[in-house]
């Protein structure tokens, strides 16, 4: 019988089991609560550690001009490096994604997508080593050529860095790092194009490219935007690759190939933190908080964009 109150053959087991169900439900709820608390903790600890830097007199902050003056070049460098990275990687990544989803033969496509997934997981310190030992020297030749021939552009004003450890190199390394992330997600989106729509386009006599423009790209637009934003988030927060590659002097400049380069927030923390004490630590934590806010804004801008475009597609 099924009542919990009456004494039946199952009473002892029943009593134990009716406890087990709420217990398990409580366990999952507790895990969820831990996540909520952890995030509240992240916000609270960062703020409390950053606070002394905000209230400190400006001459005690490194540089001597206060927190804002300290943070501004770093924020600038972070945004510049990430923008360079995306300008390079986004078009290439979309090309790779299209190549895998609609151009390459099936077996090759499977192999390539496996390699791309793998590259998304390669540790950033490895990218950093590659960037400084291999890429920077190669690029320094190109930089000196650029400085000689298109030096009238402020971007390439020079004088070109001999080591090649410039913000542009950092941007290229970040581009290589974000490329697998963006292309992996875009590929998934392109592959989800309804087969019927593709065939409908082809049945109208469209060439492959016309079919892609008619069916695949409109369908995948919001997915590609969010993939790019995810790549942007990764580029903004990337630490070690930039810390290794960039030879920073903390200037605000659009000259991409000279020896004077802005640093990024994340790289600056990694470089300064191990030796930092007292108010320096608080300053670095404050910069970390600024980075957190930037990535947060980027992520939610992406979400908003995706939500809006999917809504407009629906109506």
């Amino acid at each position: 019988m099924w009542s919990t109150g009456t004494a039946t053959q199952q009473t002892s087991q029943t009593g134990r089991r009716t406890v087990a169900d709420p217990f398990f439900a409580g366990l999952t709820r507790a895990a969820a609560t831990v996540i909520l608390l952890a995030l509240a903790g992240v916000a609270a600890f960062l703020c409390s550690e950053a606070w002394p830097a905000v209230t400190a007199p400006s001459d005690r902050i490194a540089g001597g001009d206060g927190l804002v003056a300290y943070l501004w070049p770093l924020v600038f460098g972070t945004l510049l490096a990430a923008a360079l990275a995306l300008a390079i990687s986004a078009p290439l990544a979309i090309g790779v994604a299209l190549f895998i989803s609609h151009f390459a033969p099936r077996r090759l496509a499977l192999l390539i997508s496996y390699v791309v997934d793998l590259l998304a997981a390669v540790p950033s310190v490895v990218y950093g080593l590659w960037g400084i030992f291999y890429l920077a020297p190669k690029l320094s030749h190109i930089y000196s050529w650029l400085a000689d021939h298109v030096g009238w552009l402020p971007l390439f004003a020079g004088p070109a860095s001999v080591t090649g450890r410039t913000i542009l190199t950092a941007g290229v390394v970040l581009a290589v790092m974000t490329l697998p992330v963006i292309s992996a997600l875009s590929r998934e989106v392109f592959l989800q194009t309804p087969r019927l729509q593709e065939e409908a386009a082809l049945a109208l006599g469209a060439t492959r490219w016309e079919m892609i423009r008619m069916a695949v790209l409109p369908q995948g637009r919001s997915g590609v935007v969010s993939a790019t934003m995810l790549g942007l988030g990764r580029a903004l927060g990337e630490t070690m690759a930039v810390a290794l590659v960039l030879s920073a002097s903390g200037l605000v400049t659009f000259n991409l190939i000279s020896t004077d380069n802005p640093s990024t927030i994340a790289a600056n923390i990694a470089l300064q933190f191990p030796e930092a004490t007292g108010i320096q630590v608080n300053t670095l934590v404050a910069s970390g908080l600024a980075l957190f806010v930037i990535t947060f804004v980027v992520n939610f801008a992406a979400r908003g964009l995706v939500a809006r475009s999917s809504k407009s597609e629906g109506s």
Binding site: M1, W2, S3, T4, Q10, T14
Partner: peptide
């Protein structure tokens, strides 16, 4: 003779019957 929806009835045990 017993209500399936009586207060002290455990739905899990009902399903075993």
């Amino acid at each position: 003779g017993r209500g399936l929806y009586d207060v002290d009835v455990d739905p899990v045990l009902v399903r075993r019957d």
